[in-house]
Design a protein around this nucleic acid. Structure first.
Lengths: 337, 337
DNA sequence: AATAATAACGAAAACGGTTTCGTAAATAAA
DNA sequence: TTTATTTACGAAACCGTTTTCGTTATTATT
């Protein structure tokens, strides 16, 4: 049956609109008898309050915005799962936006948020994001915003990250201990927090193990599968080719494996491989893949929980919140032997 | 700078609210000079119309709802990409909801939509969905709804699917031609449209090739990774174990490979495997995986395009729309030899 | 019995826009 | 010149709620 609005419900019951509204909100101003009448009728006539009318009046949208670079990626889809689990519990709705790794897109999306469409924002910034004015503007408008995974260090708000430096360190250490001496590091950005921290860990490990790090081993991979394939092929064809690869994001796994296959490089005999990845198929790859696995679901969940704590209590401050959830290195065949 | 609302903008310019609104909508009632003044001031003071105020008045939310069983799945995340690409172009916003394969969840989500939160809905139903009253109720409320991939046959609205019957047929045929005689079919539901059509294709192929299909080869897999692993293990341990497996969804790939590994069954020598899957890692699995690859992005995009056509023109009917986009079988090592 | 307090409801304002309608001034038609 | 039309704007209604405030009828207090 067609659902009804409050005015029609009021007319039906010969009560005022305000009485209906109050009864439905269990106001003490309304008698128990009237409340029952209203509740029953609301169910019978399938009354569903118009969410935007309530939002307009109440200045709350019960909606959060989630901005991520892409969705076809295990990390982000698991993070969405974590976010959704909390949102559902709290009765919030989730608007999802993809920046497609473009700063311009990201800026436009955040600009939209300034109109009141969302009560709060969870964001993992694009690889192009260097400036953070668009983010600060939003925060200045009073919209709580929390970073997860990919953060802007210069923005003073809560950040949920994983231990990127340590992960980069552990990845390099793992390979150095296996006598790798020319470890390539595949980065996706010169500016991105996660890329840089993972790289710093990689460099620190080299320093601690007194192995010089060759700058030629640090290569940038664009946001294009084919180009990445070419870049990686070129890397592996040079005379002093690497004896190991650390891929800093999941997307690079396939091109690395493909390039090795093409060049008849055996993993792990000729070259060892570690990827930052949440792929469920990591363990059934050929060979099975050593990964740094991030706590994707937990990061999403934690970020969402913190956001809702802020939304529920005005006096919560996000300024100094900085939660780090560790990743784990799972050693498999791609670095064994 | 803090963004401003229309009232403040009007006060600032000493113009009426209606003049501002009309100027911003390029109404012919407003002179060019005034329009310029308003446009400039709107930019200067960073005026962003409150989306819910406009929605309330205009009876349009510029938002669509997308309901899927899960997001951590290549098919659905690619479909979201397709949907988002169109939504972005049309200036629409996308609310995403996960049913987690639960009918109860799905019902609650759709019930919420009846209040006016979204202008239209794209849905891929849960594996539990048998009844479709919740969907018909929503449509009866005037909310356009389009199915993609997983449909309810008895609901009279547009459906974007892939050629499930033919895909099931081709998968079975591919294996039958390789002399497989006991082909297991892993299903995730007795009621789901995609499962049944794929199964029917599988059965038809057996009939056409005059190979009897053993009912014991058709096994149900629940929505739980560990249980699936157990089910598959048991399947492979029975005395007349299958010599091939068709997994009807991506999620079953890992448990199949793991079970084979545990039981020392060589793929493809001892057992051949085909999965319905959009995994980018299919080609680098051990061994590389023969897949039925669905046009996930296109399906999402097509569904979204059709929905927007309906939203833009009232006289479009969704009743008889039935678009089928074919899948492709990509033969790889898991069925070779 | 007169007054104060309380209970239970309705009228109306408010949220921030869009749109209909009315109106004064400027221009066109007679 | 008088009337009709057009131009350019403002007032107010409206979208569907929530909430403040006022009002009556009832109950409690003195």
């Amino acid at each position: 049956m067609k659902s009804v609005n409050i005015k029609e419900l009021a007319r039906e019951l010969k009560l005022s609109i305000s009485t209906i509204s109050k009864a439905l909100h269990d106001s003490h101003e309304i008698s128990a008898k009237t409340k029952k009448i209203v509740l029953d009728a609301a169910a019978k006539f399938n009354y569903i309050p118009h969410p935007y009318a309530s939002s307009l009046r109440g200045k709350k949208s019960k909606t959060i915005g989630v901005v991520i670079p892409e969705v076809a990626d295990s990390f982000f889809s698991l993070a969405i799962n974590g976010i959704e689990s909390v949102a559902k519990e709290k009765g919030y709705h989730v608007l999802i936006y993809l920046s497609h790794e473009s700063f311009e897109n990201e800026k436009n999306i955040l600009q939209q948020f300034r109109g009141g469409r969302v009560d709060g924002v969870l964001i993992s910034v694009s690889r192009e994001t260097i400036k953070s004015d668009h983010i600060n503007d939003l925060i200045a408008d009073g919209i709580p915003l929390i970073f997860f995974d990919r953060v802007c260090d210069d923005v003073d708000t809560a950040k949920i990250t994983t231990d990127d430096f340590e992960s980069g360190y552990r990845a390099a250490e793992h390979l150095l201990k296996k006598q790798c001496r020319r470890i390539a590091f595949l980065s996706i950005s010169y500016s991105l927090s996660i890329s840089n921290k993972r790289l710093e860990g990689y460099l620190q490990a080299h320093q601690d193990y007194k192995i010089p790090a060759d700058k030629k081993m640090i290569v940038y991979c664009p946001d294009d599968a084919k180009k990445n394939y070419t870049v990686i092929k070129k890397l592996l064809q040079q005379k002093n080719r690497p004896d190991a690869i650390i891929a800093s994001v999941e997307k690079l796994t396939a091109p690395v494996y493909k390039a090795c296959e093409l060049l008849k490089l055996n993993i792990p005999k000729d070259i060892k491989v570690i990827c930052f990845s949440n792929l469920v198929t990591a363990s059934i790859l050929n060979p099975s893949l050593t990964t740094i696995t991030q706590p994707a679901f937990d990061m999403g969940k934690t970020a969402a929980k913190l956001l809702f704590r802020k939304l529920e209590k005005k006096n919560v401050s996000l300024k100094k919140e900085n939660i780090v959830i560790p990743s784990t290195l799972i050693a498999r065949s791609s670095t064994t032997g």
